[in-house]
Simulated assay, not measured.
Amino acid sequence: MPLALQTFPTVKDANATLQAAGTRYLGGGTLVIRAANEGDVSTSSLVRVTDPGLSQIAVAGGKVRLGASVTMAAIASHPELAAIAPAARAVGGPAIRNMATVGGNLFAPAPYGDFAVALLALDATVVTEDGETPVETFLAVRDTSRAIVTAVGFSLPTAESFRFLKVSRVKPKGVSVLSIAALLEMAADGTVASVRIAMGCMADRPIRALAAEKGLLGRKLTPQGIAPALAAAAEGTAPITDPIASAWYRAEVLPVYLGRLLLN
């Protein structure tokens, strides 16, 4: 079935058209076009926006704003975004990173969406014409959202505070077995003062590792210190099963790789 493509200069112009049944927004197209090529007939029309503001990266005063059309390649090569570049580089190979966008990654179902895992750990906000929404809230309702994402914003982490790990069977561009991102703030005595841990493939969308976070607070990043967090890592998860790995396997290896991430 042929796909109709409508192009608009602004998000406001495109929003009304996007409400029609069978219509989807076209960002980088890495998932929606592949689905159509594989026989998905649920989409009959695509909408895209050419506003150059959607492709802008702004870094100022310790804050980052990424337009929804910013690609993973642009993030990976940006000199001021080195701390989060590993999460962008985890998305596919070079060809995919040249197309895959920030906005599209927010909607990518597991086992995709590695950059969305990073955004969840960073406590990002998702920007639409309706305002700003915490990324955790947005991810929970993304399947019913019809608003066009215009940007995401977050505080720029230091290289020491942000950690990201992707586990895949085919490196460097394989699909995720799981992905983990952590934002850690340490107290003067070397204990964890605050922490956010996000995981991919441990549900149908990125989720927080709340029990593991609780287990880390006030503890040092040593094998003994992180043991309670690792024991609780799988609490509240619902790992996916796909051709890459079973839910059982993902739950089994999660503590192993979370430990490696925390011990750096």
Score class of each variant (00 low, 15 high):
residue 190 G to D: 01
residue 2 P to Y: 04
residue 101 T to N: 08
residue 93 G to Q: 03
residue 156 L to C: 09
residue 59 V to K: 08
residue 151 A to I: 01
residue 83 A to M: 06
residue 215 G to T: 10
residue 251 A to M: 00
residue 53 G to F: 07
residue 36 A to F: 14
residue 65 R to P: 05
residue 61 G to Q: 06
residue 14 A to S: 08
residue 255 P to I: 05
residue 183 L to C: 07
residue 42 S to Q: 12
residue 104 G to H: 09
residue 139 L to K: 07
residue 58 A to Q: 15
residue 99 M to T: 01
residue 152 V to E: 07
residue 90 A to R: 00
residue 181 A to H: 06
residue 98 N to F: 03
residue 263 L to M: 15
residue 4 A to M: 08
residue 246 S to L: 00
residue 212 A to L: 10
residue 136 E to P: 03
residue 161 S to A: 15
residue 81 L to Q: 08
residue 82 A to S: 15
residue 230 L to G: 10
residue 115 F to D: 05
residue 105 N to W: 07
residue 223 P to H: 05
residue 174 G to Y: 10
residue 168 S to E: 04
residue 195 V to K: 12
residue 140 A to H: 09
residue 208 R to S: 11
residue 133 T to K: 10
residue 122 L to P: 05
residue 31 L to M: 13
residue 225 G to A: 09
residue 84 I to A: 06
residue 247 A to R: 01
residue 156 L to D: 03
residue 226 I to C: 05
residue 217 L to A: 03
residue 126 V to A: 09
residue 58 A to E: 15
residue 241 T to D: 14
residue 258 L to Y: 01
residue 227 A to V: 02
residue 72 M to D: 04
residue 147 A to C: 04
residue 100 A to P: 11
residue 205 R to W: 06
residue 228 P to D: 01
residue 35 A to W: 12
residue 56 Q to I: 02
residue 80 E to K: 15
residue 258 L to G: 12
residue 5 L to W: 10
residue 64 V to G: 01
residue 97 R to A: 08
residue 64 V to L: 02
residue 164 F to R: 05
residue 196 R to S: 14
residue 101 T to Q: 05
residue 99 M to W: 00
residue 141 V to L: 07
residue 110 A to S: 15
residue 67 G to K: 00
residue 58 A to R: 15
residue 227 A to P: 04
residue 105 N to F: 08
residue 10 T to Q: 08
residue 184 L to S: 09
residue 96 I to N: 07
residue 195 V to E: 13
residue 246 S to D: 00
residue 69 S to W: 02
residue 235 E to C: 02
residue 43 T to W: 14
residue 198 A to S: 15
residue 177 V to S: 09
residue 77 S to G: 12
residue 128 T to S: 13
residue 223 P to I: 04
residue 80 E to L: 14
residue 183 L to F: 03
residue 66 L to V: 04
residue 213 E to D: 09
residue 60 A to E: 14
residue 179 S to T: 13
residue 116 A to H: 11
residue 11 V to D: 11
residue 133 T to H: 06
residue 154 F to D: 02
residue 32 V to Q: 00
residue 179 S to Y: 11
residue 100 A to H: 10
residue 65 R to Q: 12
residue 77 S to A: 15
residue 233 A to E: 05
residue 162 F to D: 05
residue 71 T to W: 07
residue 135 V to Y: 11
residue 10 T to V: 07
residue 6 Q to H: 14
residue 198 A to C: 12
residue 120 L to Q: 07
residue 165 L to R: 14
residue 82 A to W: 01
residue 16 A to W: 01
residue 213 E to P: 11
residue 4 A to H: 08
residue 75 I to D: 03
residue 45 S to D: 15
residue 123 D to M: 04
residue 221 L to I: 00
residue 147 A to P: 02
residue 46 L to K: 07
residue 113 G to W: 06
